[in-house]
Design a binder for these strands. Structure first.
Lengths: 377, 377
DNA sequence: CTGTTAGCGCTTTCAT
DNA sequence: ATGAAAGCGCTAACAG
């Protein structure tokens, strides 16, 4: 197919009509091509281009090589290099592809830092339904497609110890089964900001609506909330639900039936927040008059809602960056060490929080119909 | 470092304390290892494992090879294979990492179809500020990291023809400079549904709020809207703004100042929708009483907003799938051909649209302050 | 100062 | 019905 012999020189017209057939892809220029052009050996070219410090070369030759490379628009073949060096320069990021915008910020931080460290990132999807054990992504390393795994899968399943031990990996935004490979944010401090803020306003009954208890971040938030509330003598009710609008709606209704009803509530995700807000509205509960609301997901849209929602803003970009650093350290054989991102965690005050109103709610909670959709057109 | 000679057999204790040093990564099993185990030549193993049809082999040998491979948990080295075959089995998807959830659906479709076709996908970020010409991603192909490019970058810059011609690529959700490489959705039909729906209700003055005119989807929506409105004798006002909450807010206010004021309006993105809704609320314009609203971005949260928003739902998942198919076709040398995804495009009726009210709005538009945030904690 | 050489792990044509 | 051998493009140890 590809013939080593030079085909007879056929001048390439500057503006030739696109040949319709299979695009005869031009073979990329190789080290050997520029070696020929510069009249030196390939190994010399390699050394020059990689800036081998142990190389002494006369400036003239050096220049000749460099300009030949530039002239031919040389690009090293990452495959061949990786094969030889036993490292690919690629990382895989495994995310649950949820609609939640926090993943965008995480991806952004990851991609940026990877580029900084000279890696490219391959993003893999974790099926949302029927999530697979993290070990199922081993093959990416085993096939030498990537040097390591950034596992941002959500579930905390204690089963698969050692499925993955042998290959470089880091758990992002969750704790994995093996210590020393976790990169997480300081959820406890986030919760503390939340509790302190509400306690300062005089709230004494707080609710926390969050995702399934098996999700590691949820687990840590709930644990921290129990601790801080207990310390302050505040009563805490936790409601778990799917991290969707419907989940938020359901959990919200369940919360409203509590006696006595909480005066403030935190929500674990943006999607749940929409459901919760909708439920409160349908139930005729005023925000923040009848219920103060705080989101643990920051997003720009919160400022534009009917009543702008106060949130705790987490350092997801930094999390992504730190995860890359930690993984690269693992790849380079440095000792394992967990990482916790502590800053910046800020409470963004908007209009959804107020001091608790004295009495009980004016009217009992009706059971409204959940919003649906009707197709047309 | 890695010695070919077998080290003296050291029984591996079942539960040995993790050695702390640099993890002596176990070298993956190679073709040659299982060849040795099965007592055949590597080439035979290769043929067996790849199911070479032209191979006749006695069943016994065949079984021996297969079970040896299975026993050793053999994984082909993708690098070496790619080097030999001159194809990597990887694609790159270049997306502007916006918060907009439509990208999630696109990524999902892309990843799913890629897996179906035996490819892995490397997702690259297009810097949102200072977007780069698509040609800047050539290097991924030139370095043999991927076989082709899925370019879902947003901007329509007519400059860089032929920067990219030579390498397999496809433009996703936008048209590129070279014909035959576009995979887009039928925005015209989406707009038609929108116009038909409103016209049917009696609206005669419609507005369209959308992203910058240089964005290709915006361009096509606007062109279609002008056409359909003209055909029906409906007056159309278009307002371009950044695809953010603030952009939607600004454009919304600009729209409200029109005389006579439109009675219905379409919005190009979810983020703009939040801004627009907020602006309408601040201006005291009732939805749908004073203004009907339709979103061109579908998202589950729309059903849970203060007034649930009617939307046109685009086939983004299918778009991602089709893009992969088109790119793989290009890679395999099939002739170029543009693709348009026409189905399913559905109008999801919710509560934000009503027949136009007769008179003019009760009160003039004040100029409210844009929502902001105040940091605390 | 620069060239020679030996692979990295795999596929594939050509011989037996 | 199977083995030998060449080579993908690059790097690195060793020679001169």
């Amino acid at each position: 197919m590809t013939n080593a012999a030079e085909p007879p020189a056929r001048p390439e017209p500057a503006t030739m009509p696109e040949p319709a057939g299979p695009p005869a892809r031009r073979r990329a220029t190789r080290l050997i091509d520029i070696a020929a052009a510069a009249g030196v050996h390939v190994s010399t070219v390699s050394r020059v281009l990689n800036g081998d410090p142990a190389l002494s070369i006369r400036p003239e030759t050096y220049e000749r090589v460099l300009s030949a490379a530039r002239a031919q628009g040389y690009r090293p073949n990452a495959l061949a290099r990786a094969l030889k060096q036993r490292r690919t320069g690629a990382l895989a990021l495994v995310v649950p592809l949820l609609r939640n915008p926090i993943w965008t910020r995480l991806q952004h931080g990851t991609l940026q830092q990877a580029r900084e460290r000279g890696y490219v990132v391959m993003i893999m999807e974790e099926p949302t339904e029927d999530p697979r054990p993290p070990g199922d992504y081993r093959y990416l390393v085993e096939e030498s497609r990537v040097d390591g795994l950034l596992l941002a899968t959500a579930l905390r399943v204690p089963e698969h110890h050692a499925l993955i031990k042998a290959i470089p990996h880091v758990y992002v935004n969750r704790r994995g089964p093996d210590p020393g490979n976790d990169v997480v944010m300081d959820e406890a401090t986030a919760v503390q900001r939340f509790v302190d803020y509400l306690a300062g306003l005089g709230h004494e009954r707080i609710a926390l609506i969050d995702g399934p208890a098996e999700v590691d971040t949820v687990h840590r938030r709930v644990a921290a909330a129990r601790r801080f509330c207990a310390a302050r003598g505040i009563s805490l009710s936790v409601r778990h639900a799917a991290a969707t609008e419907e989940g938020g709606w359901d959990a919200g209704l369940r919360m409203l039936r509590l006696e006595p009803r909480p005066t403030a509530c935190g929500v674990g995700s943006l999607n749940q927040l929409f459901g919760l807000t909708s439920a409160l509205r349908s139930a005729g509960v005023d925000v923040p008059g009848g219920m103060s609301v705080v989101s643990f997901d920051e997003d720009e849209c919160l400022a534009f809602l009917e009543v702008p929602v106060t949130s705790v803003c987490m350092p997801l970009h930094d999390l992504g960056q730190a995860a890359v650093d930690a993984l690269v350290a693992r790849i380079e054989g440095q000792p394992a060490a967990d990482v916790m991102i502590r800053e910046p965690i800020r409470l963004l005050e908007r209009d959804s929080v107020a001091a608790p109103s004295g009495g009980r709610p004016a009217r009992p909670v009706p059971l409204p119909r959940r919003p649906g959709r009707r197709a047309a057109g």
